[in-house]
Write a protein that binds this DNA or RNA. Sequence first.
DNA 1: AATGTTCATGAACACAGTGTTCAATAATCA
DNA 2: TGATTATTGAACACTGTGTTCATGAACATT
Lengths: 193, 193
Amino acid sequence: MNKNDRRVRRTRGMLQEALLHLIVEKGYDDITVQDIIDRADVGRSTFYFHFMDKEDLLEWSINQLRAYIEMQQKGVQPVVKNSGEIQLGTSMAMLDHAKDHKELYQAVTGRQSGAVILHYFKGMLRDLFEDEMGTVLTRATPSLKIPHSLAVDFVVNTFWTVLTWWMDNDIPCSVAEADKTFLQLVHSGMYGD
Amino acid sequence: MNKNDRRVRRTRGMLQEALLHLIVEKGYDDITVQDIIDRADVGRSTFYFHFMDKEDLLEWSINQLRAYIEMQQKGVQPVVKNSGEIQLGTSMAMLDHAKDHKELYQAVTGRQSGAVILHYFKGMLRDLFEDEMGTVLTRATPSLKIPHSLAVDFVVNTFWTVLTWWMDNDIPCSVAEADKTFLQLVHSGMYGD
DNA sequence: AATGTTCATGAACACAGTGTTCAATAATCA
DNA sequence: TGATTATTGAACACTGTGTTCATGAACATT
């Protein structure tokens, strides 16, 4: 299968678009392969020619997003200011993207979501944050008390918490403010500083 | 349907036990109703006489757990020490329970889990923590910068992070130490204090 | 111990969704 | 243009769901 064939690009594009729209409409878990091919107007056998199943299509779609975020993220170098404040590219890039695709992110962070989609999404976040933290953490603080793996999990889950909260409540809160809240929680918790 | 009928208690008990064992064996999502009734050795129609579906049985089971934890938790009053340290009953009670049912908690926190089970589990955590925090937060700090709903989410997710990390890595770390780590992250983040 | 009530059983059923196969057709590439 | 490669749709076997119903078993009560 030649991925540069115009037909292939077209088919995969339509399937991905159908998936994303359906996630917004009914949540990932309730989607059936039938729904996807109906919406994309693609033959059943065609779907299985490209992807093993629904999950395979999701994984591919998430990887497309990952590539995009990685591109955006490279613009912002992770920084540790003198004041102790941290700045990360990943969180800003993700929040920006979330702002531009609010419906999708509301669906992914909301109750309608699914275990699988969460798994892949958080997996992506983990990779992205771990990259940056490798740089920041060693530079910023040899005095970190908790294990590295727990630190990464903590950052990922705190980001997820803020993202979910930001998406759920229609709060007139800018990307910068959301990012600041995230960094504050990670850095100093609810009371520290 | 009389819930005190010995037959009812027996049937529901067998179904719950089957569910929990199957969660450990293959993860919630992969379980079918067929699996449950096979393992419980209960008729198909009997299952549907008691529960609407797999999810209904799960919800009932989680509520059983909630009742148990609430009982345990009441032993420990939430405290704010002079040093600023916090002490919560919920986290200790949960960690204790997790220690005694490690296989189950590993299955629930692990990759094999499911969206539905996470939803109910975190819902339970949210209720329990919110109760305690209503007391602690108002008493401890009028200077909390983030909204209350975000604070509760943050506590729940941070607890989930620590619990998951504790279950995943077979670290020889006591309940008290895990609880301390959790409280530190919530209170002061990774760097604060 | 007998009785009326309630629960448990298992087989049968219609239904929805999955993933595969195959021969025919249409679009693409070079 | 001709060879290649993707797409199509219908048919198929399969797995699991949730319901129904007549029969049998366990229960509480007197």
